[in-house]
Design a protein around this nucleic acid. Structure first.
Lengths: 219, 219
DNA sequence: TCCACTAGGTACCGTACGGTACGGTTCTTG
DNA sequence: CAAGAACCGTACCGTACGGTACCTAGTGGA
């Protein structure tokens, strides 16, 4: 393992510029549109430079993931003490952020790319994507879970399990459907509300379950 | 809507044989391994026949989806009256079946294929996949939902919403992770149990919620 | 002024794909 | 048995990709 603490694996401004164009091509035209020739043309650089910088096409793809991950920085929760309303607010914000990230153009394009490659490269890209992209979101949520438990606001045995329950309630099959090409939700906030209400019914300490079930109409 | 009642869009035995080989190639080597030449060689047929039968490559892919869908027939629920234990059993069976289907080699390969193509064909394959593959499973689950509500065993406003809640609890992010190349769960049955318990805590009529939360350890 | 270095532009190579054409073979059908 | 369709095997075509080689234009330091 190479140290990933700093931002050592970053690239020169010129290279970031090229990677940005690569992402643009990928978003617009998918896998097939991201060719070395096309990228060289779009980014006004030479193919030779591409190969010098990134090694080969796989190296370019990995660099794109790293580049994209370096743009998305996770926000830290403030240090105020958690209350019930506070926790609910944080959970809903997390849920909205999660839906926002998953439905983003670049996220979808990169996930499609990694899924397409997973059959032939032993899921190298998939691992990269999960490692760089999801780990941070997971950590933030699990930290929130544990904080809630410490304050006596949440009940669960295993934070990971509880987090995956929340994840399932928030996302359901939406991610796969979007990957398949369906448009996303009209109202992420509403979905976030419903999911968090259900989650608190399951794992919340106080009885907020009664009203939660009244929230179920639109989809 | 075209009638999908009969099995009109089926193919000749020879063609089914070829489609079976095509699925095998796709599962083993992914998108890239499914070439017209490779398929002709593997299936001992000529490329000309492939083009005569399926039109072009996209037609072949669509035919593969239809063929696979025709193999998976959904089971109908028996007509006995639903009880609480009965319902739980049916829900768990459904959850296990769902996990089984989603983690199947062929299902994963077809989903990967459709996701890879979704950038360039306007999600034509994705629509086909959802339509042929998922609709039946969805219908079975929603029928179960409504039956449970009719018997006073489940509480919800919208059956579709309730179903998606169950789906999220059962699958969480597992499907996407498997699509990215991660191995599936060790124990589908355990996951099904936990998900159904949580679901009944949310939407069950009787108070089975207390013990449900004790089921949360392995993942 | 010269020189080493970086990077852009372009031509090129081998390969492999999707799709078509054609001769030979097997199977159906009257 | 004979005519015709269906089909197999293979050769072929145009294209486009990943990757390499070569040449040119700046640029900064001594």
């Amino acid at each position: 393992m190479i140290s990933d603490a700093g931002q050592m694996p970053e690239f020169t401004p010129r290279q970031n510029e090229v990677l940005e164009q690569a992402l643009r091509l990928l978003v617009e035209g998918g896998d097939k549109a991201l060719t070395t020739s096309g990228l060289a043309r779009a980014a006004n650089c030479s193919k030779e430079s591409l190969y010098k910088w990134f090694g080969d096409r796989d190296g370019l793809l990995a660099a794109m993931i790293a580049h994209q991950a370096s743009k998305v920085r996770t926000f830290e929760r403030g240090k105020e003490r958690l209350t019930a309303e506070n926790l609910r607010e944080h959970l809903e914000t997390f849920a909205r952020d999660l839906l926002e990230v998953l439905s983003g153009d670049i996220s979808l394009a990169l996930n499609r790319l990694a899924i397409g490659q997973s059959s032939r490269d032993g899921s190298k890209l998939g691992k990269l994507l999960v490692e760089h992209g999801r780990r941070q979101i997971d950590r933030r949520a699990i930290a929130l879970m544990n904080a809630g438990k410490r304050e006596g606001l949440l009940r669960f045995d295993d934070a990971d399990d509880a987090y995956h329950t929340l994840y399932g309630l928030v996302v359901s099959d939406l991610h796969v459907r979007m990957l398949l090409g369906e448009p996303g939700l009209k109202d992420n906030a509403r979905q976030a509300e419903r999911a968090v209400s259900a989650f608190l019914s399951l794992h919340g300490a106080r009885q907020e379950s009664g009203e939660a079930l009244r929230f179920s109409s639109g989809r």
